[in-house]
């Protein structure tokens, strides 16, 4: 008898926290898929390191969401017992690893955002979120530096690496807009000083992205069309496969303690 999905009372603060937690978990999971398979041993360690940072962020955020929600949910129930339509992460972070260029460009786009976002969130009136932000900002700053250096190396490396990096930018670009979007649920939290409005961060994000892309001799797409849906559970086809793997033991052995 499989355990049913949990029910979540998505009050604005719970939903806000779960969205960030899901971003961190899904991206961390993607990075962990590289473990043992990276292009160099040094990079294998670096990818695992970033994956662990993100996993750590996810765990703190889930625990906080559980506390705010005040029901029987906990970090593992949020991670293992929600289905694809209940997940609230950005479409960007669930995109498959692809080649190393795609993984790095995905990391670059996200870290450039997360770095700004968590820094701004350090001013949150919610003390727990402000503390999580302070830790996450430090980690994101390193992730951004690491990913930027790779984007530059790949863009300005060989013809092949340039082509792969450019393809990754072109393919992932339309998933970047969602990072700066908000909905009604966010608005009240922003007004109360608990959440940060990401929209004003976009020019700074674009400046960072542009500077790195220029140095990497890569071009940013002209298209402004942006995909959305992750925040409300309308995902790409990729997430379901990721979750079926992630959740397999919890779904196969319902209620067991591990």
């Amino acid at each position: 008898m499989p355990i049913a999905n949990i029910q979540v009372s998505e009050t604005p603060l719970v939903l806000f926290t779960l969205r960030r937690a899901d971003d961190a978990l899904i991206l961390g999971h993607r990075l962990s898929e590289w473990c043992g398979h990276a292009p160099t041993l040094e990079e294998d360690m670096a990818l695992a390191n970033m994956g662990l940072d993100l996993l750590g962020q996810a765990r703190e955020l889930y625990s906080y969401a559980a506390k705010v929600e005040g029901k029987a949910n906990d970090e593992d129930k949020f991670a293992y017992l929600r289905d694809v339509r209940q997940y609230r992460n950005l479409l960007l972070v669930e995109q498959p690893n692809g080649d190393f260029a795609r993984t790095m460009v995905r990391q670059f786009f996200y870290a450039a955002f997360a770095d700004l976002y968590w820094r701004a969130m350090m001013q949150s009136k919610d003390a727990t979120l402000a503390a999580i932000a302070a830790k996450s900002e430090k980690e994101s700053a390193y992730h951004l530096r690491h990913a930027s250096e790779w984007v530059i190396r790949l863009g300005d490396g060989t013809e092949e690496s340039h082509r792969r990096a450019q393809t990754a930018i072109d393919d992932l670009w339309s998933f970047t807009g969602e990072m700066f979007a908000i909905d009604d649920s966010d608005r009240g939290l922003i007004d109360a000083g608990i959440a940060v409005d990401p929209a004003p961060l976009q020019p700074q994000w674009l400046k960072t992205i542009t500077a790195v892309a220029n140095e990497a001799t890569l071009a940013l797409p002209a298209s402004n069309w942006m995909q959305q849906g992750g925040r409300s559970g309308r995902h790409s086809e990729h997430l379901g496969h990721l979750l079926s793997e992630l959740q397999s033991l919890q779904r196969t052995f319902p209620g067991a303690t591990w």
């Binding site: 292009p39 990079e43 190393f100 790949l154 092949e160 690496s161 792969r164």
Partner: peptide, 9 residues
Amino acid sequence: EGAWVREAA
């Protein structure tokens, strides 16, 4: 599969 990455670096 990592060869092109190492070459690029």
